[in-house]
Design a protein around this nucleic acid. Sequence first.
DNA 1: TTTTGATTTAATCATTTGTTTAAATCAATT
DNA 2: AATTGATTTAAACAAATGATTAAATCAAAA
Lengths: 214, 214
Amino acid sequence: MTEKDQNTEEKIKAAARDLFHQRGFDGTKTRDIAEAAGINLALMNYYFRSKKKLFDLIMMETIERFFQSVLDIIREEDDSMEQKIQKLTSHYITLLKQEPDLPVFILSEVRSNPSFIFDQVFKDNDVGQTPFFQFLRQSIGQDTSDPSHPAHILLNLISMIVFPFAAKPLIMYLLGLDEEQFHHMMDQRRELIPVWLHKLLPSDELPNLKNHEN
Amino acid sequence: MTEKDQNTEEKIKAAARDLFHQRGFDGTKTRDIAEAAGINLALMNYYFRSKKKLFDLIMMETIERFFQSVLDIIREEDDSMEQKIQKLTSHYITLLKQEPDLPVFILSEVRSNPSFIFDQVFKDNDVGQTPFFQFLRQSIGQDTSDPSHPAHILLNLISMIVFPFAAKPLIMYLLGLDEEQFHHMMDQRRELIPVWLHKLLPSDELPNLKNHEN
DNA sequence: TTTTGATTTAATCATTTGTTTAAATCAATT
DNA sequence: AATTGATTTAAACAAATGATTAAATCAAAA
């Protein structure tokens, strides 16, 4: 692996990542990747064996990058639940402003491949084994018709953060926004979502979400 | 157009709709459609000219079907805003429980084609020309940092309704739900979302969303 | 400088994929 | 029953697509 080779490999990965994120696996052609990376068609197979293997690599890196932050933020024991919510909201709005294609890419590729993608990524980092998620799953057994049930509240948090980016072109079209106005609205949601989430809870103490702090 | 012909045409459309909704345009092969419909490959071209034309037809019908209800519900002048919210929530949760593929299908196909899909559908029904959307667009010019700004509140409503279905496989995986538990949670959200939305507003009168009723 | 191994290229291959064609079949009318 | 037009079929085509090959190029080591 000389300097140039590494360079070529990275150029291919970067171009492939862009295209896969924008157009998905089926919508991306090997010749598109080669052209976007400025390399010979055969080099894609030389470095990554096949389109599918390249895709799997990028998919794994993408999922890992996307979900790693949840872990980091949730595990920080010095933060209160409110602080965690603020950090999650802020982090993901920043991320999605830069890469608005991520939600639809992940969701549309997950519908074909099922859980096996996540088994791969989550078994190493065991997101699911976090006290937070254990608490969540255990609470599923209980009455989920409670308006402040943790599963619903979490769903609402994720929905309010992610959906506007997933539906970005549609929202811009329907509300008649330009790129700048859209970003401005998302910046406002960075402050507003924690406020809204707080209103969804019965008291100031967030009794249903607090499980291992204060 | 004899009885049998109409039948064939409908069989093709039904099979194509299923496959396009599940796998998108690029992921659906003409031979898959033929096999699923139980017809000869050439009949797809005989009845619909090309895969693209068949797709465009189905896309238009799907979008129209999906958004027609918004219009019907929003335009009903005898309903208060709270009633409209209840009707919207209930209607779309019923629809998405039956067809959970719709959100990802629409969002992933819209990312390639831009607004031109909606121009087609919305110019006839002029969703955008509804007093509701005119009010919305006009209010964009004003201070959108207001926590109860209509654009944000509407975004939250749509997000809370649609996102859980868009992310259905992921949510089932992370929360460890089976199909029945997931549907049960969605049924609960039918009642809960209007309650939550109400909490996001400053007073009982929903001052920012009421524009042409009581 | 020569050698060696890695990298890059142009050309080609085999398969998949969307579409067409010409003949066969069917169903209604004469 | 024969005719007519619509529908269905099997076969084939051309282009697109993912992958491979053999030769050319390059860069470092001998």
